[in-house]
């Protein structure tokens, strides 16, 4: 029995770690400027946790096997502990855990403690049950106001625009795909019409809840890498439970060259 425990625990440990080491399953391609640092932090954590994981599990396996009751009448070692040893691993654990955290500080700070670069492309993202819609401010760079009573999904007025009366709304462009130019800082302003949603693009290494009653800005820059895969098209998924259609709530991110982007935007503008 002891041998079985030792073997099974060892096997589970090696298989679990092996699949990570072989990178059988890994993050999808990274298309953002900030993603590499995050992936690196993940890898670092993985290595540290991996070492602790292997040490603890194999230790467990070894102890179970080594100290099994062999029926030889040996008495167990009578020990209430070892203060020095305990102090050592307490301090070691504290240093490793908290140190790891501080290593990740810069990544987080860069993403969130500073705003978007000046001149970033501003796009509004509106989530609703169960779709995302996007609004570009148009040439005037301004978003027109939202009139709740004007919101009408059946005729595509998701943002409640009054194009007849509001100057700023006239040139606003509403789309169902998030088209962005490559290499240009983008600022998304997230808002929700009804319940909580979330904006998650795996390849962008970006996830942010969309909270009704709040406008949450996030910013990123897509790299050239984005154009190389899948025609620049990536999935935007909702990750916050929002109701029966949650699993189908998605939209697409289309990364384009600057010229393609301009062309695309004009086509979209024409369809308004």
């Amino acid at each position: 029995m002891a041998l079985a425990v030792a073997l099974v625990v060892t096997l589970i440990t090696l298989i679990s770690v092996g699949i990570f080491v072989a990178k059988v399953y890994w993050f999808p391609v990274d298309i953002s400027t900030h993603g590499a640092a995050m992936d690196h932090q993940f890898l670092l954590t993985l290595i540290i946790c991996g070492v602790i994981f292997v040490a603890a599990q194999l230790g467990l396996a070894y102890f179970v096997w080594r100290y099994r009751d062999k029926g030889d009448g040996r008495k167990a070692t009578y020990s209430h502990g070892n203060n020095k040893l305990e102090a050592t691993w307490t301090i070691a654990a504290a240093i490793v855990f908290i140190g790891l955290n501080f290593l990740g500080y810069n990544i987080w700070a860069k993403m969130h403690f500073t705003g978007a670069a000046p001149g970033a492309l501003k796009i509004q993202v509106q989530a609703q049950q169960f779709a995302f819609y996007f609004r570009y401010p148009g040439p005037d760079g301004e978003f027109g106001p939202t009139h709740l009573e004007k919101v009408d999904d059946a005729i595509g007025n998701f943002f409640g625009l009054d194009r007849a009366h509001d100057q700023a709304s006239k040139d606003d462009i509403v789309t169902a795909t998030l088209g962005i130019p490559v290499n240009r800082p983008v600022e998304l302003i997230l808002r929700s019409q009804d319940v909580e949603h979330s904006f998650f693009v795996r390849e962008l290494r970006m996830q942010q809840d969309i909270v009704p009653g709040m406008e949450i800005p996030i910013h990123f820059t897509a790299t050239e890498e984005a154009l190389k895969h899948n025609g620049g098209r990536y999935e935007i998924v909702c990750t916050q439970l929002c109701g029966l259609g949650h699993y189908k709530m998605r939209a697409f991110l289309q990364v384009m060259t600057e010229q393609d982007y301009e062309k695309w935007l004009q086509t979209q503008a024409a369809a308004q």
Binding site: A154, I155, A176, T177, R250, A251
Partner: peptide, 24 residues
């Protein structure tokens, strides 16, 4: 009003990529 069906490719496909307009 043109209808944007981008988020569900199945819907776009059903119309063969032709633009669809609001019935109202």
């Amino acid at each position: 009003h043109q209808i944007m069906m981008d988020q569900d490719p199945a819907c776009v496909k059903a119309h063969g990529g032709k633009p669809v307009y609001a019935e109202d």
